[in-house]
């Protein structure tokens, strides 16, 4: 029997509050709700905000507001900021590893590997920012005295349902390519293991990433995904974590002809060189014509 005699602890730890990340701020859900998050073994870890449909709409407004600024940055500057995210994650490595280990029930060493891969993925996409145009763009040899040139441009606001089984690496693997191209995002964290997403939001908030470029919601997939998929001001939808809801959500997305990425696209999150596979769905191609002649 443990000794149950009360004794004064030397110091009481300060616990973290896990909140939403909306427009660069960390509010609780407007609904005032939260839900308990447990480890893979069922141990209570924290209470996460239980976001509402209204939070989804607020997040879309924030993402739309951030779009002109973020897409208007030079590609080089976006790359620098993405690299800064990697730097900030490296500084919080222990925290990420602890959360990943608890969420996925893996050893500390394996969790460290996952964190490294997630950091490296930001570095990878940091390098893509100013190379996309050269890989996806072209000068087109049209038959006539015209200059004709095509360039990728960001689609706009993307809704992302983060993959459920990979709360850090999978999350980074779907989020990074979207903002690399200059889109802004509303991200719904995996319902069961949302804590790494909130910690990532805290890293993003200190990375020179403008507020609103990434908005992170935690809560019930079934509650948050339909209003996001049907929202008229969302331009693209990544269904990586949609699970059984995928078909229904794609149907909702059809209402405004969103660009939809179905689950299963390059979903080996540990693949180190995913190329432009996850960027391409989130860009439009713009072609400019101009006559040539004196």
């Amino acid at each position: 029997m443990a000794d149950r005699t009360p004794s004064a602890p030397a110091r009481v730890a300060v616990r973290r509050t896990y909140k939403l990340y909306l427009g660069g701020a960390f509010p609780r859900s407007e609904s005032g709700r939260s839900y308990p998050v447990t480890s893979s073994r069922g141990v209570h870890l924290a209470n996460a905000a239980l976001a509402s449909r209204k939070d989804v709409r607020d997040a879309v407004v924030a993402a739309r507001k951030a779009f002109p600024g973020w897409s208007g940055r030079t590609a080089c500057n976006r790359g620098q900021i993405l690299y800064r995210i990697a730097e900030m994650m490296e500084g919080r490595r222990a925290q990420f590893a602890g959360e990943v280990a608890a969420a996925q029930g893996m050893s500390e060493a394996r969790a460290q590997g996952v964190v490294s891969a997630a950091i490296d993925r930001w570095v990878y996409y940091a390098g893509w920012a100013d190379k996309l145009g050269q890989v996806l763009g072209a000068a087109n040899p049209v038959s006539g005295p015209y200059f004709n040139h095509s360039q990728p441009e960001p689609t706009g606001v993307a809704g992302i349902l983060a993959p459920a089984g990979s709360p850090l690496l999978g999350l980074v693997a779907v989020l990074a390519p979207v903002i690399t191209a200059g889109n802004t995002a509303v991200l719904v964290a995996g319902e069961r293991a949302p804590l790494p997403a909130v910690t990532l939001a805290e890293a993003l908030a200190t990375s020179d990433l403008p507020g609103g470029v990434v908005n992170v919601l935690t809560g019930r997939l079934s509650e948050l995904a339909p209003p996001l998929a049907g929202h008229a001001d969302v331009n693209a939808l990544d269904l990586a974590g949609a699970g059984e809801l995928a078909g229904e959500l794609e149907e909702l997305a059809a209402g405004t002809l969103k660009r939809v990425v179905r689950p299963g696209l390059h979903d080996d999150w540990s693949a180190a060189d995913p190329g432009v596979a996850r960027i391409r769905p989130f860009v439009e191609t713009k072609t400019v014509w101009h006559p040539m002649g004196v």
């Binding site: 100013d130 190379k131 060189d273």
Partner: peptide, 18 residues
């Protein structure tokens, strides 16, 4: 600085360089 930053990003993407 920009030149090193730009080329750093190519190092793991050479297969995409055409």
């Amino acid at each position: 600085a920009a030149h090193f930053f730009y080329h750093a990003g190519w190092a793991d993407k050479l297969a995409h360089a055409g």
